[in-house]
Simulated scan of single mutants.
Amino acid sequence: MSNLQAQLGDAVKAAMRAGDKPRLATLRMISAAIKQKEVDERRSLEDADVLAILDKMGKQRRESVEQYEAAGRDDLVSAEKAEIAIIGEFLPKALTEAEIDEQIAAAIRETGAESVREMGRVMARLKPQMQGRADMSAVSARVKQQLG
């Protein structure tokens, strides 16, 4: 069991003791997604795998917030934002814009990439360092801009 899974288990127990049903529901949803991935892949997940799941869940909820705001569904927006906050508790501290740019520049230097066609090598280098700490689609756009 990964360290994040242990933290998640402790958070579930604390939410149960506190009687915090909305928080408990979100934590159970996260646990279910992790368990599903373990069953699908027939292996125990490491922290990096759990971070990828949490990152994906956060991204899905941010997209939902945009759609609900466009539709004027403020009740659903607040529920999604609450879930984003709970998911965010288990993600590492987000990188600043300067830190992202610094890591991109270092990855470009290390890989020797000179054009957009070599972007895959740069992204492969960045993903383990940035997973859960930055929006990877935004990072990809920045890499493309710097290589282009």
Rank of each mutant, 00 (worst) to 15 (best):
M1E: 06
M1G: 12
L4R: 13
Q7S: 13
G9K: 13
A11I: 05
A11Y: 12
V12T: 06
K13L: 12
A14W: 00
M16V: 07
G19E: 00
P22W: 00
T26E: 08
S31E: 08
K37E: 14
V39Q: 08
D40H: 11
E46C: 11
E46P: 08
D47N: 14
D47K: 10
A48I: 14
I53G: 11
L54E: 06
L54P: 14
D55R: 15
K56F: 15
M57R: 12
G58F: 01
R62C: 06
E63K: 14
V65K: 03
Q67N: 12
Q67A: 14
R73V: 03
D75S: 13
V77D: 05
K81V: 10
E83G: 11
I84Y: 02
I87A: 03
I87C: 03
G88E: 04
L91I: 03
P92C: 00
I100M: 06
E102F: 13
Q103I: 02
A107S: 03
R109H: 08
G120C: 00
V122C: 02
P128L: 08
Q129I: 09
Q129K: 13
Q129H: 10
Q131N: 11
Q131S: 03
A134N: 10
A134L: 10
D135I: 13
A138G: 12
A141C: 10
Q145V: 08
